[in-house]
Design a protein around this nucleic acid. Structure first.
Length: 452
DNA sequence: TTTTGAGTTGTTCGA
DNA sequence: GTCGAACAACTCAAA
């Protein structure tokens, strides 16, 4: 009988369409391992940690015959210990292309090799792995649209089925990770629930996706992001079921954006905390006490701009925010409050259940104009016109800002125009958008003077 | 090597 | 109310 092999689960908490797990299962009986490594989740608040803990437990119960071996501490020591206890000499894992994952995996691979253990890194968490899509001259893409053409030409593998493995049982386990307390109502847990939601999306929402995805009051998006974050679904599985309608094309592009940002971060790992475009690094930002107060108001959803406050409160309540609103609140932080985009990005990473470093940081950089295809300096979202355009009836604001629930569509996005109806317990705008827009434009001009 | 067309998601202003 | 132009200049990617 073959020696057992270890499968090391990280951001691939599923058993369907799983090439790395399939490779392990083909090599021998599988010891499934999850290492509770604090840095894996850094920096995450309770909602994302709770979602992870529940997802791990669900995987163990529904798909691994409760054979999952959870170990706490450093992966090198944890994996070496499990190997020693089980006689395994090989370890399989899905390749991780994030900045921390790469450092960890290089270190783990070398350290375990010294102890006679081989680590096989297989596949990736993307439709096309980072460092694969390249220009004609072999350089990475810096602009999405040509990346997307090339990405489409390359294509992606068809998804595989459920991996059948012989699980090794009876190995000591430190106990499943505990879900921290949270008031946030988490998405449904597990592979089956994720695919059920995707079924619903394909059935009811994808046809209108092109337009409806911009309407925060409508349940018109896929909601796949938390599952993609932890590999509970793989993008191959989503892509395989898309046709070529307008809505499907648009959704496919969103999957490609995820791959693109992962590729950009792979090329320039420091862009997780610094401006990708060095010319933009000198943008003047406010950091004084007043700036801190404004940041606090933004985070709590009391800026006096209803659409911004609704978004920030949705984030706290649900660990999720509609994409259109993410752009509006990000633009507000950067261009109305003149704060450093990394402040906002860190707040998002703390609260989001789907918080993904590459997508989050580069989404923020895009809004801030410091990232890929730097957005023109004059693209400054007007929180009132955006609200009227994308939440025309005010349904979204009404849901998350109860103080304003009594206002009609005409006044809800500008409660200060409601006269006597204006709710006394809702704050006045903390800044004047017109004035701050002008300020942002001036800051851009000064940057231009400096860089010549 | 040089040229050419294009670049997710916007806003304002004036005709 | 609608519509097109202007808002900078630059870099990217392919021909």
């Amino acid at each position: 009988m073959a020696d057992p092999v270890i499968f090391w689960f990280r951001r691939d908490l599923r058993v369907t369409d799983h090439p790395a797990l399939a490779a392990a299962a083909a090599a021998g009986p599988v010891v499934p391992v999850f290492v509770v490594d604090e840095k894996l989740t850094d920096p995450a608040g309770a909602p994302r940690l709770a979602f992870l803990a529940k997802s791990v437990a669900n995987l163990d119960r529904t798909s691994l015959d409760n054979a999952l071996v959870v170990r706490n501490g450093d992966p090198v020591e944890a994996l070496a210990a499990v190997a020693g206890e089980t006689g395994a000499t090989a370890i399989y894992a899905t390749d991780d292309h994030g900045p921390y994952g790469r450092r960890r995996d290089d270190r783990v691979g070398e350290a375990l090799a010294d102890r006679g253990l081989v680590v096989h890194y297989v596949d990736s968490n993307y439709a096309i792995a980072p460092d694969t899509v390249r220009t004609k001259t072999g350089t990475p893409y810096k602009v999405f649209t040509p990346f997307y053409r090339s990405w489409s030409d390359i294509g992606w593998a068809s998804p595989g089925g459920v991996v059948e493995a012989e699980w090794v049982t009876g190995v000591r386990c430190d106990g499943l990770p505990q879900a921290p307390e949270t008031d946030v109502e988490l998405p449904a847990i597990g592979e089956a629930a994720a695919m059920e939601r995707y079924d619903w999306f394909l059935e009811h929402a994808v046809d209108d996706y092109d337009a409806a995805r911009d309407r925060p009051g409508i349940d018109g998006t896929s909601r796949m992001s938390p599952y993609l974050k932890w590999g509970i679904v793989h993008p191959r599985q989503l892509l395989a079921r898309l046709g070529n309608s307008r809505g499907e094309d648009t959704f496919r592009k969103e999957i490609a954006w995820r791959d693109f940002y992962a590729d950009v971060l792979f090329q320039q790992p420091e862009s997780a905390r610094q401006a990708l475009n060095p010319k933009m690094a000198g943008m003047e930002v406010d950091t004084d006490d007043r700036a801190r107060e404004r940041f606090d108001a933004w985070g709590r959803g009391v800026t006096g701009y209803p659409i911004v406050d609704a978004g920030m409160r949705q984030l706290r309540a649900e660990g999720w925010m509609h994409n259109r609103i993410r752009m509006i609140v990000a633009s507000f932080l950067v261009k109305d409050l003149h704060l450093d985009w990394t402040w906002g990005a860190s707040h998002f990473m703390e609260h989001l259940v789907d918080g993904d470093l590459a997508s989050n940081q580069h989404g923020w950089q895009w809004v801030a104009g410091t990232g890929t295809d730097a957005s023109p300096y004059f693209r400054i979202f007007n929180p009132i016109s955006q609200a009227k355009k994308f939440d025309p009836e005010g349904d979204y604001v009404r849901r998350y800002v109860p103080e304003l629930a009594g206002l009609d569509a005409k006044h809800i996005h500008e409660p200060w125009t409601a006269g006597l109806e204006s709710p006394p317990d809702y704050p006045a705008p903390i800044v004047d958008h017109g004035a701050e827009r002008a300020d942002a434009l001036e800051r851009y001009d000064r940057l231009k003077d400096v860089s010549g």
